[in-house]
Design a protein around this nucleic acid. Structure first.
Lengths: 223, 223
DNA sequence: CAGGGCAGGATTGGCGACAATATCGTTGCC
DNA sequence: GGCAACGATATTGTCGCCAATCCTGCCCTG
C-alpha cells in the first residue's frame, strides 16, 4: 500500500478513536462526554482525552462549554444543508480537476467502484453502497490533487455524516443517487471537466433536495 | 478601533495572540516556535502555549513534528493558489446567498465600504485598501448567513494571508481589483444572485491569475 | 406548601514536576 | 583528514495533584 491514508499522520490516535466512536453512533447527540469515563474506556490518560476533545471541539464534532464539559454536537438539519451546499461547489471544482488529471490506472479503479456500486444497489445492500459512496467522493477529491481542500472537506463531511447516513437508508434513495454517481464517474473517466463539474453539482444538489424533504417531514412529524 | 471580533467566541485568547503574531509577520516561515519562549513572551503557562500550538497546528498555520516542536508553516505558492480556487467557488456561493438575504441597512453598509475603497485607492493607501478588502470578503460571507462555512473559509484564508498581502502591495494591483470589488458590491446591493456569484468568481479568478504570475516571476528570479 | 439559600459531590481547568526523545558538539578511531 | 560513536543539553510529551466552577438535592424559612 503505497500511500496516503486520508488523515493519518501526526493525528493523535485518541482523536481518531473518539471520532470513530461518535461517527459510529456509540454516542448520541447531546450526550455528555466525561473525560475520565473516556479515559478508562480507551485506557489512556485523562490528559490525552482532554486534548482530543479540544481538537474535536474545534472540528465541530463536539460542543465544549467551559467548566461544563463536552457533549457530542447535534447538527441541525439547516446546518447539514449548508454544509452540503458548500460541498456541492467544492466537490464540483474537484471533480473538474480530477477529470483533467486522472490517469489510466485511476480510471480503471473508478470503473471498478462503478461496477461495485451497481452490484450493491441491485443486491439491495444499502450499507455497502453507502460505504462505496463515501469512498467515491473521497477518492475524487484525492484525484484532484487538492490536499488542503481535502482536509477541509473531510472536516465538513464529518459533521454531516449522520444526516448523510440516514438519507442513504431511505427507500428509493439509491435508485436516484446511483445514476448521478455513474454520471460523475463517466465524466471523469471521459476526461471531461465541464461534465464532471456539472454531474457533481447535480448530484449534491439532489442530496440537498432530499435533505430538505427529510427535514420537512421530520418537523411535521414532530407536531 | 473598537473591536473586530472576527473569531471571538470561546476561542482561547492565547491562540489569538500567537496567531496574530504569525500573521503580523513577527515570526517568519520555518522559524521554530519554542514553547517556553512563547510562554514567557506572553506571560502565560507553558500548558496554555502548548494547547494553542496544538490548535494552530490543525488549523494549518504551524507545522508540528512530534518531539521536534512547532514551526510556522511555509505555505507554498501552489497551495495558496489551491486555497484561492476553493475560495472562488465558496465565496461565489456566499455572494449569491448574500444577494438574496441582504437587508436595506446592510446595503447601506456595503455602499459605505464601497466609497471607502474608492477613496483608499485614489489616495494610494494600499494597506487601508487591503484592510477594507478583507473586511468586505468577510462581511459578505457573514451576510450569506452561512456560519459553518464562514469558519471553514476563515481557516483557509489564514493560511494564505501572507500571499494575499504581498499581492496587494504590487503596483497596479488595486487598479484591477477595485472594479471587481465594486462589481460584487453592486450585484449584491442590486439583489442579483447570479451576477453576484459571477462577480465574486471573476474577482477571485483574477486573484488566482495574479498569484500564478507572482509565483512564476519568483521562481525565475530564484534561478 | 412554595421559594430561596446552602452544603455535598462531581467534573473540569491549570500548574508543576518528571520522563522520553531529538539535536548538537566533542572525542576517539580508522 | 574524515567518520562514527558517545555524551551533554535543550525541548517536548505525559502524568498526577490541587484549585475553581458548576450541578444536585436538601433543609430552612416565610
Amino acid at each position: 500500500m503505497s500511500a496516503a491514508p486520508s488523515i493519518p499522520p501526526g493525528s493523535d490516535p485518541v482523536v481518531e478513536v473518539i471520532r470513530a466512536a461518535i461517527v459510529r453512533g456509540d454516542h448520541v447527540p447531546d450526550q455528555r462526554l466525561v473525560e475520565v469515563d473516556l479515559a478508562e474506556r480507551f485506557s489512556v490518560s485523562r490528559g490525552a482525552v482532554r486534548s482530543a476533545l479540544l481538537q474535536l471541539g474545534n472540528e465541530g464534532l463536539v460542543e465544549r462549554i467551559p467548566n461544563r464539559g463536552a457533549r457530542v454536537r447535534a447538527v441541525p438539519p439547516a446546518e447539514a444543508i449548508e454544509i452540503t451546499e458548500v460541498r456541492m461547489v467544492v466537490e464540483g471544482l474537484c471533480a473538474a480537476k480530477a477529470a483533467q488529471r486522472v490517469t489510466d490506472a485511476e480510471i480503471a479503479e473508478l470503473r471498478e467502484i462503478r461496477a461495485e456500486m451497481i452490484a450493491a444497489v441491485e443486491a439491495g445492500e444499502v450499507v455497502i453502497y453507502s460505504r462505496l459512496n463515501n469512498r467515491l467522493h473521497r477518492r475524487l477529491v484525492e484525484l484532484s490533487g487538492q490536499a488542503t481542500t481535502g482536509g477541509a472537506l473531510e472536516r465538513l463531511r464529518g459533521q454531516s455524516v449522520r444526516h448523510q447516513f440516514r438519507l442513504a437508508l431511505q427507500p428509493g434513495r439509491p435508485a436516484v443517487s446511483l445514476p448521478e454517481h455513474l454520471a460523475i464517474i463517466d465524466a471523469v473517466c471521459g476526461r471531461d471537466p465541464v461534465a464532471a463539474e456539472q454531474a457533481a453539482r447535480g448530484h449534491l444538489g439532489s442530496v440537498i433536495h432530499a435533505l430538505r424533504m427529510s427535514a420537512d417531514t421530520a418537523s411535521s412529524r414532530a407536531s
